[in-house]
Design a protein around this nucleic acid. Structure first.
Ligand SMILES: [Mn+2]
Ligand SMILES: [Mn+2]
Ligand SMILES: [Zn+2]
Ligand SMILES: [Zn+2]
Lengths: 139, 139
DNA sequence: TGTCAAGTTTAGAATAATTACAAATTGTGG
DNA sequence: CCACAATTTGTAATTATTCTAAACTTGACA
């Protein structure tokens, strides 16, 4: 449908977020947001960009991921010590995490029902509930 | 009660795990296991040990934490990017995590009821379900 | 109780992910 | 187009952690 204007969607998205549509940001946004829901590390995205012929430094990949996150286009997921995943699915949801492969797979929020939660510690308020289902290759 | 033999408990614990009771391991085990359930980083434990007058290197703290983990005396918790917590509570349970302070607080398993979970991806088997309730200082 | 091999500790180097910096480049309103 | 702020980038710095190889303990047993 938008083969004539391959950047119009991400362009609107960047404009909506108040971010200048630079060559690098357009290319990264295309990789991030036009392939369905994705879970990527900075290094993975950098490799994809280079493979797609996009000249972009790793520093810019980090900058861009954080800017997108601040703009509400992404969120960061922590499941693996010493490695951050960025998740393009902004709906409330949970994850399968496969320790063998490092893969993250979404679980829609309505497929996890939490019927009880204790009161948070005094003076604290609940921000978000993360459920991570650790899975392994069947053995 | 065991003031006469202040190390007998941790000594038994190390013996049971097949670990030689060295000065360093005894001291770290005492700090870890005789103060109720704890959630510590390697750096925190190192600082505590030094404050208690125990000469121990940071490398040994890391070695010891991993050995204790392999022996089933501890488990590692990942909630904060780039920092590992070690948890002395080996019962199945969940956590409050306060992003402001970095504090982890246990939630007993029976206070979280999960009434639905989807099938794991093909060929995968569920290992463990981690629930992390992110909380913030009330604003 | 002394010996010795195996297990353990350690200082410091190495690694990996991420962030900081300051100079060069680019996007945009006028 | 211009001026100027925003952005990008190569490189250095930082942080948590792991590796290494030499020095030191421990425990079995003679
Ligand atoms: Mn971040
Ligand atoms: Mn570990
Ligand atoms: Zn996701
Ligand atoms: Zn815990």
């Amino acid at each position: 449908m938008n083969e004539q204007r391959p950047y119009s969607k991400v362009l609107d998205r960047l404009r909506g977020a108040g971010l200048r549509p630079t060559r690098q940001r357009l290319a990264l946004a295309k990789l991030l947001f036009e392939g369905g829901d994705r879970h990527l590390t900075a290094e993975m995205l950098h490799d994809e960009a280079r493979a797609a012929g996009v000249g972009v430094s790793l520093a810019t990949v980090y900058n861009t991921l954080h800017q997108f996150q601040d703009a509400g286009l992404l969120r960061e997921i922590v499941v693996d010590a010493g490695r951050s995943y960025f998740d393009t699915n902004m709906l409330t949801h949970h994850h399968f995490f496969c320790e063998d492969t490092g893969d993250l797979v979404d679980i829609p929020a309505d497929q996890v029902q939490i019927n009880a939660l204790p009161e948070p510690p005094a003076g604290k308020t609940i921000d978000r509930v993360d459920v991570v289902v650790h899975v392994r290759a069947r053995g």
